[in-house]
Simulated assay, not measured.
Amino acid sequence: MTTAGLPMTFPLDGLPARVRIHEVGPRDGLQNERAIVPVEVKAEFVRRLADAGLTTVEATSFVHPKWVPQLADAEELYPRLTGPDGPSGVRLPVLVPNERGLDRALALGARDVAVFGSVTESFAKANLNRTVEESLTMFAPVVDRAKEAGAHVRGYLSMCFGDPWEGPVALDRVVDVARRLLDLGCDELSLGDTIGVATAGHVGALLTALDDGGVDNTRLAVHFHDTYGQALANTLAALRHGVTTVDASAGGLGGCPYAKSATGNLATEDLVWMLQGLGVETGVDLGRLIATSEWMADRLGRPSPSRTVRALSHKEQ
């Protein structure tokens, strides 16, 4: 049993009073594992994350098993999470790449779905085998039908800061695709630093450009990868610009199977440690969260990359 210490609290002006953490470990994290994690372990992982106080836990993806075999058990997993033994009062978003994926998700009662787009043509081709324009056309009926079914729709937007094939991404290009995704009817848009090249000034510049372009920052989330150790600094920059939803992955699990230079997501524990030190509420019990990541690390057969997990763990690393 791990007992977590707590940081000293020194609030900073200009930050939100509360941040909602969008936990992506069970989906974005586990899809990047080489091994197939048993469905029982996935279900227990989600339950433990909910018990730690996370109120939004992205559960799985309804993609074709050929493309992401690690999540091929979505039809078996999702009912375990929404049945009588599943966590209560927790949003369980699922990724739906197309109408077929949406059909599968809605058939199981999903009411919180996400589509996954790209700013750049190279990544759109690698991830969706479509151009950016073609992907937006594909998403339009998915979003329409999801909204008709009463679902909340999130749009993921990858490569907002840099692309491994195309290099730096122009701010106005991000603004254009972001506005078009929101115009399709997405309720929320998550800005992805897929290969982790953003810096705090870049984050501020993009959020300013989005605001100038008519994108309300209350509809934005940020999704940072920690490739160059900048994820927390970038998160703080986003919070200073009014963003109140941050994606993170328990234990720092994940990356991106379609971008070889993408390393792990921002670790949820590292995020919670920083936010607690700033006096920003999250509702998350850090000790329980660390215990959950240690538990999952044991099942994956390796230590957690999260610095906070390692610092506060009572296990020998």
Rank of each mutant, 00 (worst) to 15 (best):
D103M: 06
T60D: 11
A238I: 01
L275D: 12
L77G: 11
L102I: 09
W273N: 01
V197E: 09
N265K: 14
L95D: 10
R288G: 15
V19S: 03
T60C: 14
L81S: 13
R154A: 12
R302S: 13
E166M: 05
G242A: 08
T131H: 08
A72G: 15
L71R: 00
M8W: 09
V215F: 04
C256A: 02
R18Q: 15
L253G: 05
I195Q: 02
P79N: 15
R307K: 15
T56W: 01
V203D: 08
A237S: 14
D172I: 02
S261P: 01
E33W: 06
N234Q: 10
R240S: 11
H223P: 12
E99G: 00
A17P: 00
T82S: 05
V115A: 07
D28S: 10
R173F: 00
R18C: 10
T194N: 05
L71N: 05
P164L: 15
G214E: 05
Q70E: 01
V280H: 07
H64C: 03
T137G: 04
T244A: 14
K315V: 04
S88V: 05
R100A: 12
D176Y: 08
R219T: 12
N129V: 03
E133C: 02
T2S: 12
A221V: 02
G101I: 06
G86V: 08
P16T: 10
T199F: 13
P65Y: 05
G201P: 04
L220S: 01
A259K: 06
R288I: 01
T2D: 02
A105R: 07
R47T: 04
A114L: 09
V132Q: 08
S304A: 12
L266A: 08
L81G: 13
A291P: 04
P141M: 09
E133M: 01
V19Q: 05
A126Y: 03
Q276M: 13
V37R: 04
G255L: 09
A110L: 03
E148F: 00
L286A: 08
A140E: 15
R104M: 14
L6A: 15
V284M: 05
V177H: 02
K42V: 05
T208S: 13
L6K: 13
H223Q: 13
S293N: 02
G242Q: 11
P26C: 14
A178Y: 05
G213K: 12
L92I: 07
Q317R: 14
P168S: 10
L181H: 04
A291F: 01
G287A: 02
V132S: 07
P69T: 11
